[in-house]
Design a protein around this nucleic acid. Structure first.
Lengths: 294, 294
DNA sequence: GTGATTGATAGGATTTGGCTATGGTAGCTT
DNA sequence: AAGCTACCATAGCCAAATCCTATCAATCAC
């Protein structure tokens, strides 16, 4: 049973004639006759009585007609539903963000996008890189914003921005007045760092390693605000990315002078993953927040 | 959008693999890939994410899947409904019968058929020949039982039986004792006949004409029982077919000796009309009531 | 790295739907 | 009554679309 057979069948039913049906369906009359016969053969019943000049539905034809119409209608509806979802920038977008980016970067883009496309519904998952990647691969989120570059051949990414790292010191610290500080100068300071599964901890340790500094960790947390508060209380020092800077009376941020003391953040998508128009729109939207490289 | 494309799409959705779907659908994998791509092209969206080894539905695919399934289900159901109606001897049969046959011939075949096929529903229309033919051509009745032969190239018929005509006389009539009577002997009798639209009136007049008798009609009715009663009352005489004979104390039936003094009844169907299995079964059933020609 | 599995691509073969021309029949017109 | 027209069926050819085999590219496992 083929689609065009159903179309031809309905056309004959409506016009009451093979010839007129053929005109309507833009085919030659013999072709249409042939397809109707084929359909009748497959169903094992005659659908039309050919009575000389007139053509009339048989009892079976009358039974079959509404069903054929329903099927064609369903097809049209299915196609239209897809087209509808395709044309309108609406529908769900799921994104993942790591905790060291989410509160600093995301609020503005999110708010602007929602205002621009009110039809959309954005879900944000805040988690650490490893779990976000799992979700990305599982198709649970459409894209992730995290520290790049990501290794892995199954993902694609583009850079949003590269930001300097800053040492955060108690305001009373001996180095707090400097405009720039080298990590070597901090080698004996007690360090406050993020917990192990946070990638920025790795970034911080990596940059220390390059400076031949082995940080002595005295405090671990899941968020920068805790660390800032502890530094302010004089517990030690830490390193944060630029976007985590917030003015506090008890802390000072000093630029880290070491080479490559920076963090790059970017947007990661799964390679081969098809993105809907909303999802692509959100990606493009994020791209407008990318800063030119220094 | 073609049916096999929907089938392939569902198969991939179910198996999660193009290769396994191709096996399931009994086609080569490239053919299946090709058809999926064609479907995607027509819809304008990707339906699957090809992620290395795994294949997963996109958001559009998820939307489309239930609709595709519904369409395939509808097709199956439509086919099955037709098959169901085809295989079972059940459903409606509409027949037409003229009044001069209906009460005599029909009761027994009708009762036996209903007992044999309890699923069936037989509708009987009793009307005169002309109107039955109209209904037959309009498709309102499937067959008609009437006096044959029918002229007209758009119908087909077979004979049920040929019956002798009988003169019906008051019991006290001078010819009532004879075993056979010629129409000439009745030329001066007052005739009771059916009304004009009844074909048996034509039959009776025709046979009279052949005997050079011009009947003088003194009473007209729509049914034989009225005529019988009137003849019994001595109003005149009449001619009836064999099946209309009923024993009455006041009437005598005498065989008409003229050549071709008979009526043939048969079953008429519309040429080119498709008959369902029940309808054919009823035709065959009627045929078992046909009598061999003398 | 190597082999195995999976989906995409390429090119040739087969099927099939479509077209033109024609036949046959019913119904209308002259 | 004959011819004409309208309509569906049939026949034969053609073109398009599907399917197949062979092969490639990429991924994943060992």
């Amino acid at each position: 049973m083929e689609v065009h057979q159903l179309r031809y069948f309905c056309a004959v039913s409506e016009t009451g004639s093979f010839t007129r049906a053929a005109e309507k369906e833009q085919v030659a009359q013999p072709s249409l006759s042939q397809q109707i016969m084929k359909l009748e053969e497959e169903l094992g019943v005659r659908l039309f009585d050919r009575l000389g000049r007139t053509v009339r539905l048989t009892g079976f034809g009358q039974v079959f007609l509404p069903r054929a119409r329903a099927i064609l209608g369903e097809m049209k509806a299915a196609k239209e539903e897809v087209a509808e979802r395709q044309s309108s920038v609406s529908g769900p977008v799921s994104i993942g963000v790591i905790p060291t980016i989410a509160p600093y970067f995301l609020p503005l883009p999110l708010a602007l996008f929602s205002r621009k496309y009110p039809q959309t519904c954005i879900t944000v998952v805040e988690d650490v890189t490893a779990r976000l990647m799992d979700r990305l691969r599982a198709g649970q989120i459409d894209l992730a914003i995290l520290a790049t570059p990501m290794r892995g051949h199954d993902v694609e990414s583009f850079t949003l921005r590269t930001e300097r790292l800053l040492a955060i010191l108690p305001r009373a610290h001996r180095l707090a007045k400097k405009r720039k500080v080298m990590l070597k100068e901090l080698r004996d300071e007690p360090f406050l760092l993020l917990r192990e599964d946070h990638c920025f901890r790795d970034t911080a340790i990596e940059v220390c390693k390059r400076a031949r500094v082995m940080p002595r960790v005295v405090f671990e947390s899941g968020q920068f605000s805790s660390i800032l508060a502890m530094v302010g209380a004089g517990l030690g020092i830490s390193i944060v990315p630029e976007m985590a800077v917030e003015q506090r009376p008890d802390c000072t941020f000093v630029s880290v002078g070491d080479d490559r003391a920076s963090r790059t953040i970017g947007v990661v998508t799964l390679k081969g993953r098809y993105l809907s128009r909303v999802q692509l729109a959100f990606l493009a939207h994020l791209q407008t927040f990318a800063q030119k490289e220094a």
